[in-house]
Design a protein around this nucleic acid. Structure first.
Length: 426
RNA sequence: GGAGGGGUGUCUGAGUGGUUGAAAGAACCGGUCUUGAAAACCGGCGUGCCGCAAGGUACCGGGGGUUCGAAUCCCUCCCCCUCCGCCA
């Protein structure tokens, strides 16, 4: 959520930002108008309340003195009726204002490229080399047919399409990767590990911005009004919702969780294999930082995610997303894409964003600065990284001529002697 | 799921309808004193909204209600504790 004062006082600057995104100005204009009406009503209502309070105190005094209070009571009652009417109007306006504010996206950072969509994204860097093959590399689906790491038909039988059943070396590799990443972030990058609930309430979903817009993309348990998390960002960022932090900033948190996404509307698109599924595992990093530091913190966040990939010897690139391609809440965002030689495609495995105070305002998450003044924190998060596509990239980049997959050295301690994924006899 | 108890500021904790944003103590910050520290003493010490400001207003788990007036009464929801039941 944007600062209403920013819309009030710097409307042109906000409008320019929204235009760069290709977003409509309608919401911001509406918010500006509702805000003006709200302030006028608040003034009226507060004045009447002042009057009511002072006259009510008179009644107390009169009663103590044993005098008749009927006339004053009638007066105050009339004032109270006016207040009730004004406050009803006010509530309506505030509800509308809140609704409008929740639908206005963040203003993009001034330095990011301007453009309408992904075509304007800037390649920040390409790291490593694509592996050279003396044979035609297979994609992860073909590789899996020999290796037997995941069983999609049986996953579909258990639940439905898009719910992979990992098995044998596949599940072991997955588990090793999760622990490898968590260890790296906690031991080397200074993050504290969290293992949060995988199901959250609506207030948490609003806090990070999934609600109200993304309700259709999430799994919802009606009876309890609880939601399956689409990313660990939700529970981990909400840890400090409605708090004034007394811990020194920055705070770095990391968590492994499964992620549940309905992916409504994306049926048939990039859905082969485990590229896009309804349930997947991910290690997430979340930062709570002082505003002045958030852009420097974004760079180290990306570096933390990249180290997972470089340490595994994988070829990837980093994109700086343009104004038209960043997500609703983000001011600036880097995507990390792994190279998948089997399908000759770049696969997004991480999205690292600085939300500035956009999430913090919804979350109501503040800290005390050096002068003891409360200020909104800046929040950031990034995947570190998502598992299925990491698995795909490892399979496709590390495949060998004999159909096996030679696993990265760095994972060996986590695989208890497993060095190579071997074709399975059917 | 059943029965009971409870949710007040950073913490402990008073407050059962009237000038209470809230006693008292602790913690914390500033000052005096001290070679320094402690102690003692003095002062400060919640958050949001409106306002140029003075100031006003709202908030005692959330929401709603009664009343001229609610931290205090009523309804409802949430959370915590104890006991019983069920259960991985």
């Amino acid at each position: 959520m944007l600062d209403i004062k920013r819309i009030r006082e710097n409307f042109d600057e906000v409008a320019e930002g929204l235009r760069r995104r290709g977003a409509s100005l309608e919401g911001a204009e509406r918010a500006r108008d509702l805000d003006a009406r709200r302030r006028a009503l608040v003034m009226q209502s507060d004045e009447l309340k002042t009057l009511r309070n002072s006259r009510s105190k008179e009644i107390g005094a009169l009663k103590k003195a044993g005098q008749d209070t009927a006339a004053v009571q009638a007066d105050v009652r009339a004032i109270g009726d006016q207040i009730t009417a004004l406050d009803a109007q006010l509530r309506e306006i505030e509800t509308d204002l809140e609704a409008a504010m929740l639908l206005i996206p963040n203003v993009p950072c001034a330095t990011i490229p301007t453009g309408p969509d992904a075509s304007a994204n800037r390649v920040a860097r390409v790291v490593g080399e694509p592996p050279a093959f003396a044979f035609k590399p297979l994609d992860h689906i073909a590789l899996n047919e020999r290796l037997g790491l995941f069983d999609l038909p049986r996953g579909a039988k258990l639940t439905g399409s898009g719910f992979p059943l990992l098995q044998g070396a596949g599940s072991k590799l997955q588990r090793a990767l999760i622990q490898y990443m968590l260890d790296m972030h906690t031991e080397r990058h200074g993050y504290t590990e969290m293992l949060p609930p995988f199901v959250v309430n609506s207030a948490s979903m609003r806090g990070t911005g999934q609600l109200p817009k993304m309700a259709e993309d999430m799994y919802h348990c009606e009876i309890d009004d609880l939601w399956l998390i689409p990313t660990a960002e939700v529970p981990v960022t909400n840890v400090y919702r409605d708090e004034i932090l007394d811990r020194p900033l920055p705070i770095y948190l990391t968590a492994y969780t499964p992620c549940f996404r309905r992916e409504a509307g994306s049926a048939g698109k990039e859905t082969r294999g485990i590229l896009r599924v309804h349930q997947f595992d991910k290690v997430e990093m979340v930062k709570f930082v002082e505003p002045e530091t958030s852009y420097a913190e974004l760079e180290t966040l990306v570096a933390n995610a990249e180290e997972v990939l470089t340490s595994l010897g994988l070829h990837y690139r980093v994109l700086e997303l343009c104004s038209g391609d960043i997500s609703f809440s983000a001011a600036k965002c880097y995507d990390i894409e792994l190279w998948a030689p089997g399908q000759q495609a770049w696969l997004e495995v991480s999205s690292c964003s600085n939300f500035e105070d956009f999430q913090a305002r919804r979350l109501n998450c503040r800290y005390r600065d050096a002068n003891g003044k409360t200020r909104l924190v800046h929040t950031l998060n990034g995947s570190g990284v998502a598992l299925p596509r990491l698995m795909i990239a490892i399979l496709e980049q590390c495949q060998q001529a004999d159909g096996s997959v030679l696993l990265p050295e760095a994972l060996r301690p986590y695989l208890r002697g497993l060095e190579r994924l071997e074709p399975q006899a059917k």
